[in-house]
Simulated scan of single mutants.
Amino acid sequence: MLDLSANFCLKCGIALENRDIDGTIRKACPNCDFIFWGDYSIGVGALVIKDDKFLLVKRAQNPGKGYWTNPGGYIEQLESIEDTIVREVEEEAGIKAKIRSIVAIRDLPRSVHNLYIAFAMDYLDGTPIPDGVEADEAGFYSIEETESMNVAPFTKWLIHLAYNGKSEGLLKDLKPLVSLNDHVLFRIS
């Protein structure tokens, strides 16, 4: 399916044309090298555990208004994934946490193709306080407590995966065999 969301070149402003790029019809500029590859977003979510309880926030706006979810959000263009998830947890719930591992990845192909990366995070400091914009409640809850809450189905899946998972997940590679400047790498343990 051809994505029609871009009609003009983002580099020079010329109207884009349909062109076969490596066997796929894409919008491309006839004047310069710009190719519209599609519309993508990368979301991140945090599974912060403290005393066998998960940090959850109650969504104050859509998507998911009224549901309890794990804190998270979208990566800004020039922001690292690590900075994003640490920022989102602190913004939405007032909690300082650090990344331990990647526990799940969700691929949701649609008009804006969404990739979501869920991180297990270690609690560092703070008391759950909602931001009052994206979240109107925040707290740490046990799996038993979540059974009577309006927890979003995807969040339920993530909680059970993080709580019952047999793997450490993908861990940040602090000493890669080959140094790759500006890369943050995660690997199996």
Rank of each mutant, 00 (worst) to 15 (best):
L171M: 15
S5G: 07
P71A: 05
G165Y: 00
E134K: 15
D131V: 05
E137I: 12
Y141K: 06
I188H: 14
D51S: 08
V48F: 05
G132P: 07
F8W: 08
G165P: 00
S41C: 07
L174D: 15
S179I: 04
I105E: 00
N114L: 06
N181E: 13
I129Q: 07
R106Y: 13
R59D: 08
D182H: 14
E90G: 04
S167K: 15
E88A: 04
A97I: 01
I143P: 04
E134G: 10
N7G: 13
L4Y: 12
A60V: 03
W37C: 02
V184T: 12
R110T: 04
F54E: 10
P128V: 02
I25H: 00
G73Q: 00
E168R: 15
G23R: 00
A104K: 15
D51Y: 00
D3M: 04
I49H: 10
G139Y: 08
S5N: 09
K27G: 00
S111Y: 08
I21W: 04
E134I: 07
S41K: 07
D20E: 12
G73F: 04
L180T: 12
D51K: 08
K98Y: 02
G72I: 06
K172E: 14
E92H: 04
V48R: 11
L78W: 09
Y141S: 01
L161T: 11
A46M: 02
R19V: 09
